[in-house]
Design a protein around this nucleic acid. Structure first.
Lengths: 62, 62
DNA sequence: TACTCTATATTTAGTGC
DNA sequence: GGCACTAAATATAGAGT
């Protein structure tokens, strides 16, 4: 299906919200945050390695 | 000394520029990028750990 | 060398499919 | 559970101190 079909849709997103840095209690939300953020950390780490010729090892448990 | 003294200074920054993800050849620039970005990766990792109750270990060499 | 500042690039919370 | 999207939060390149 079409990627963008914003024709005359109302905005449905309030964009990124600020969150407190404390454990997310809701299981599913925590899982989602973990997936997204692990990806982000990995990307940043790859960039660090590539840009600076450094070795970066990351281990995430759970 | 004062943090902000922008009184009637011209803008001196073009803001964050886009860079290519390849090894930075200039030694000093690479060192600066390494310092800034390692800090950033560490912060992201801490947040991941705090938010998701995960264990994150990062090792950076050089 | 490390820190500050500004403008802009990038990440991601919330939402829908 | 994952992908796509939007808009706001955050990281950071470049320049100055």
């Amino acid at each position: 299906m079409e990627r963008k079909e914003k024709v005359n849709e109302r905005k449905t997103s309030r964009g990124r919200q600020r969150i407190e840095i404390k454990k997310i209690e809701k299981e599913t939300a925590r899982q989602v945050a973990f997936t997204k953020r692990r990806q982000g950390v990995m990307k940043k780490a790859s960039e660090l390695a590539a840009l600076c010729g450094a070795e970066v090892v990351i281990v995430t448990i759970s």
